[in-house]
Amino acid sequence: MIKYFFRRLFTFVLSLALASIVIFSLVEIAPGDPASFMLGINAQPDTIAALRSELGLDQPKINRYFDWIGGMLTGDFGISYTYRTNVTEMVGDRLWVSLPLAIYALFLSTVIAIPTGIYAAAKRGKTGDFAVISATQLGIAIPNFWFAIILVGIFAIKLQWFSAGGFSGWKDGLFNGITSLTLPAIALALPQAAILSRVMRSALIETLGEDYIRTARAKGLSSSQTIWTHALRNALIPVLTIIGLQFSFLLAGAIIIEQVFYLPGLGRLVFQAITQRDLIVVESVVMLLVFAVILVNFIVDITYMLVDPRLRQDSI
């Protein structure tokens, strides 16, 4: 068990190291000098040089890489080139939008997907199953940002139940915050729920075909009892993986939805930073997102270990 844990931990750290190198190199090859970009086209060469040295851009690449990593590890993400403010603070502010949004959407998606997936598997081959399959097929095919536009058209413009966009922050109370995140969360959750529901259904159906389910039936368990006591837990492993992947996708992949609803989230931050050549922000936010994905994968791996006794044994 300890061996398994440390192997995962090592993979986790290694992935982070590799990812940081890739991100750093990608940003390095991006054309456009941030210093001249910041000062505009009329800037004098010596002022540009001065700014470059102030920003540390004249340092060798290897030094800058380790400065960046060192800063990240101590929570100092550097100073934004464009806004001249602390990146850590900027990211922190945006995280207060993106993180609740991701959690909200993931919550919705799980709450919809797990029961429908179980229902479809229990009714496999029957009308109820067919209805769920058809609905999920449609759900996967709908682009979330289009769904978002339609939601705005109906609920914000026509019915005026929600505002069409923007986010006033959490200071106006929890309820207001949640309300302004509701439409984006629904838009994000729909396709995710459709995928998750299909995964739940097929994992459960596969498990229900296992021999030990027949053994359980031979003991006198009814077919629905076998779902709850035997199949569900075993089918949850692939579902867990997908939930993990979806969380990291929701954190980073909300860029377009944030664009639709004018939400000041991480996605919009990185999008604007890219167009403004604010490389330090791009680097930091992308690294943060990659860190989140790798961390979630790591947690999912460890959860496997807790679910599956075969992984708890060291001697295999």
Partner: peptide, 22 residues
């Protein structure tokens, strides 16, 4: 496989934006 995991770990949309921006 490590390379695979690494690519999977990157937020695809962000990298796509980065590439198109570059």
């Amino acid at each position: 496989m490590r390379f695979n995991d690494l690519v999977f770990a990157f937020p695809s949309l962000v990298i796509a934006i980065l590439i198109t921006a570059i």
